[in-house]
Design a protein around this nucleic acid. Structure first.
Lengths: 227, 227
DNA sequence: CCAAGTATGGCATCTAGTGTCATCATACGG
DNA sequence: CCGTATGATGACACTAGATGCCATACTTGG
């Protein structure tokens, strides 16, 4: 039934397809369509709403010993659901790219995820360093998720890039996630610009390098910054 | 004229105020209202669109020697414009919080900034480590901007928190911004979970600490992770 | 078999948004 | 000074999404 609407949208265009057309094509009455989906856009995003509720319940039920890992798992759930039903998500992706109204709707959808992740990571706080870190981390997780998802939606015949997904997640949670665990106010010297009282040092290196190798690299980096 | 619409919206509610009401209150005809603003929502966001174009031109004209600093300045411009005309932005903020339709519109607006920042930071790339870093960084910058902006919009009689704004910006650009400059593929051992081939180390410490102090802290952290 | 609750359909209506045409003002060339 | 071209405005009609209302099946339980 949703498939019928998607087909009509892709064939004739989203704006050109009226609710009467969909009603005629599905056999339902116009009025029942609105009762079931609420609006024309929601025909495309109905399952997405269900998914969001599932994710919210997942977050509520999760233990809070490792919020970053929980959020990463939640993002993985969303990714999973996308790649699980490409017959819906792929045409919807094309529609969303083409129709501004639908794009805004999609963005609003991901913003709801981001808000849920923020609340969870910030543990209800809305101000202060923890809240800010949670919001930035949630935004980064969403960005990483969408980054990998978009690339797959462009070529859905390719195998699902689970590895790249996990790498992207690790990448964004590795830097900001560490800041979320650190009690604010530790530290030493800034390699990079940072808040006045507090400095942040970030190093990226191949996993095979030895600890001493890493330390010597950091030492030289610190030296060149501080003279 | 926009003020009249804002007043009607806040007094009678956004949904309850029709375009005929606004036309009657402003003296213009309904048709001219649509010609000037395009839609009912755009009455509230008209100036915002102008601001976005300004920011886009700013990014186009900016030298690309320090993209992170450029984006930080762009975010500062947006913040500046918000706090500059509270008589518009504050009531709009209240409306946006109350009306879902307007909230989605606002989110779409900030998503446009985020996309512009992403493109600028990723230098046109849409795949790969640089693109991902740019997207995550853009998302974090937006999150930090909105974090500080929201707190001020809640109590606009307070002085503008420029310091907190700059600190928040430094905080998010300090960690991910460093990653954007690093040529991918350096590194050694993970203190935090990270991508398989590549590890990320993050240290947060008071700016007063000495380099040797920082190194010893990192050494012990590495030791405890690798056994 | 009936009664109560529920899903569905048909109809009217409201309102955002668009296309069209007439009107009016301003500006410009003769 | 007059005719004309152009741009802004207004009036009207129309489309389509969305909602309320009421009548009609359809199902469930007694």
């Amino acid at each position: 039934m949703v498939e019928v609407a998607v087909r009509l949208f892709t064939e004739a265009g989203y704006e050109a397809t009226t609710m009467d057309d969909i009603a005629a094509a599905t056999g339902m009455s116009r009025r029942s369509l609105f009762r079931r989906f609420g609006s024309k856009e929601d025909i495309l995003f109905a399952e997405h709403d269900d998914l969001f509720e599932t994710v919210e319940r997942f977050l509520e039920a999760a233990p809070d010993d490792d919020p970053v890992a929980t959020v990463r798992s939640a993002a993985r759930m969303v990714f999973q659901e996308y790649v699980r039903s490409p017959e819906i998500t792929v045409p919807r992706f094309r529609l969303v790219r083409a129709v501004p109204r639908l794009r805004d709707r999609e963005i609003a959808m991901t913003a709801r995820y981001q808000a849920a992740f923020s609340r969870f990571l910030g543990r209800g706080e809305t101000a202060g360093r923890r809240a800010l870190t949670g919001e930035a981390l949630a935004a980064s997780v969403i960005a990483a998720h969408n980054h990998v998802l978009r690339s797959w939606l462009h070529s859905p015949q390719e195998p699902v890039p689970w590895r790249r997904f996990d790498e992207a997640m690790a990448f964004v949670t590795g830097s900001l996630g560490a800041l979320l665990r650190e009690p604010a106010g530790r530290g030493g010297a800034a390699v990079q610009d940072a808040a006045p009282q507090e400095s942040v040092l970030v190093a990226v290196y191949p996993a095979a390098a030895s600890g001493e190798d890493v330390l010597s690299r950091i030492r030289s980096a610190l030296g060149s910054e501080h003279g």
